[in-house]
Amino acid sequence: MPVNTENMIKVFGRPKSMTDVRSTYCPGCHHGILTRIIAQTIDELGIADRTVTIAPVGCAVFAYLWYKCDAVQASHGRASAVATGIKRANPKLIVLSYQGDGDFASIGTAESIHAANRGENITVIFVNNQVYGMTGGEMAPTTLIGQRTTTTPAGRDPGYFGYPIRFSELIATLDAPVYVTRQALYDTRRIMDAEKAIKKAFTYQVEGKGYSLVEVLSTCPTNWHMSPVDANRHVTEVVTKAFPLGDMVDRG
C-alpha cells in the first residue's frame, strides 16, 4: 500500500550499519530485535569502521551478514577466545562476541569464564533462549526445570539432568568484569532497557574499562511450540522467575 510520507519526519528506520539481507531467523525470534539494537548502538557510537563481530555457531551463525562491519565466524563456543585474540592483536578495534546459550554456557564454558576472568576488554552478548534452537530444540544447560525439549520429552528432571545454570551470576562473582547484566525483550519497555544496557556495554569497551556481559532472555517460538505473542508471555511469567532481570555488576 503506497503511503504518502511527504512533509513528515522519519522517526524510525533501518539502522545505517545494518545490511539489506533478510534475516534467517524464524518469525517472532528476538535475535532480530537484538540485531537491530546492536546496529543502532554501532551507529550511535560511530564505531562501524572499527567494529568486529564474532559470529557463533547456532541460530546466529550468519551474524556476519547482518552488519556493515568486519566479522569472523568462530568454532563452536570459542567466540570469546577469538574475540580475545582480535582485541589483543589490535586494541583499537571494538570487538563484539555474539553467542547463544549452547555456545556460551555449554560448549564454550571454559573460554567464556576465562575471558571474563582475564577481564578482556570485549563486549559479550549472550542470548539465552533455553534451547539449542538451530539443531531442533534439544536441552541446553539453561533449559528450565520441567521444560519439554526433544531430548527431555518428559520435562527436565533436575535429578538426572541437573539444574538450569545462571551463567551471568557465575560471571558476576569474578573480580574482573566491569558490567554484567540480564535484560529481556518481551515488551517495549524491556527493549528500551536493553538498548541502554547494550549501549553502556559498548561505551565501557570504547573507554577501555574492560569486560562486559549482557545476557538477553530471548524467545524461541519454533522450539517452544508457541506463537510469538505467547512466547513473550512465557518469558514474562515463567522465564524471568528463573532468570531475574537486572544489573549484577556495574564497576564502570
Binding site: 510520507t5 512533509n7 513528515m8 519526519i9 522519519k10 522517526v11 524510525f12 528506520g13 533501518r14 539502522p15 545494518m18 533478510r22 534475516s23 531467523y25 518469525p27 517472532g28 525470534c29 528476538h30 535475535h31 532480530g32 530485535i33 540485531t35 537491530r36 515488551d187 517495549t188 527493549i191 528500551m192
Partner: peptide, 13 residues
C-alpha cells in the same frame, strides 16, 4: 521497535 525483521519505518507529522 518490536519488529524482529526491521521491516517497519515510522513517520510523524
Amino acid at each position: 521497535m518490536t519488529c524482529p525483521d526491521v521491516a517497519i519505518e515510522v513517520y510523524r507529522e
